[in-house]
Amino acid sequence: MAMLDHEKVIEALAATLENEVLPALGQGPSRLQLYSVLDVLENLSAYLEWGGQLAELEVAACRRAASQLAGLLEGELSARCRDFAAETGGGDTALETARTLLVDVIESPAFDSSEVRATVDACLGESVLTAAMFMKPSRLSEVSKG
C-alpha cells in the first residue's frame, strides 16, 4: 500500500464526506458530527505530514534553552539541563523529557531569576508559535451551528 500517500487518502475521504455525504444530511447531530470529522481529518493530515518535524523543532528549542539554563541553575536541575543539552535522541521520549524538564524549572524557586525566566520564555514562545503555524482553519463555526 506504499503507493497510497496518506495525505491523498485523507483528502479523498474528506472530499467524499463533504461533497457526497454532507449534502444528504439534514440539520442536527449527524451533520455536526460530520463537520467535526472533517475538521479532525484536515488537521490529521497536517499532523501526519509535519508532526514529527514539529516535535524535533520543539526538542531542539528545549536543548538550546537547556544549554543556557545549565549555566544559570544550580544542583540537580543544572545537571539535568546539562545532560539533556548533550543528548542527541529524538522522538516522543525526548519530547516528554524536554517538557518535564521545562515544567520542573518553571516550578522551581530559580524561576524567580529574570535570566532563567527569559530563557524559558524564549523557548516556550518559539515552540507555541511554531506549533500554531501548522493548524488548519477551524470548522468551529459550522460545528457550533449543528
Binding site: 488537521n43 499532523y47 520564555d121 493548524m135 460545528v143
Partner: peptide, 26 residues
C-alpha cells in the same frame, strides 16, 4: 464518543498562543 472532542487536540495549539500572549511570554 462525541467526535467534537477530538477537534480540541489541534485547537490546543492556538490556545497556547493566546496563553503565551496573555502571560507576556510572547
Amino acid at each position: 464518543d462525541d467526535v467534537r472532542m477530538l477537534m480540541f487536540r489541534h485547537q490546543l495549539a492556538g490556545m497556547q498562543v493566546i496563553m503565551a500572549e496573555s502571560a507576556g511570554v510572547v
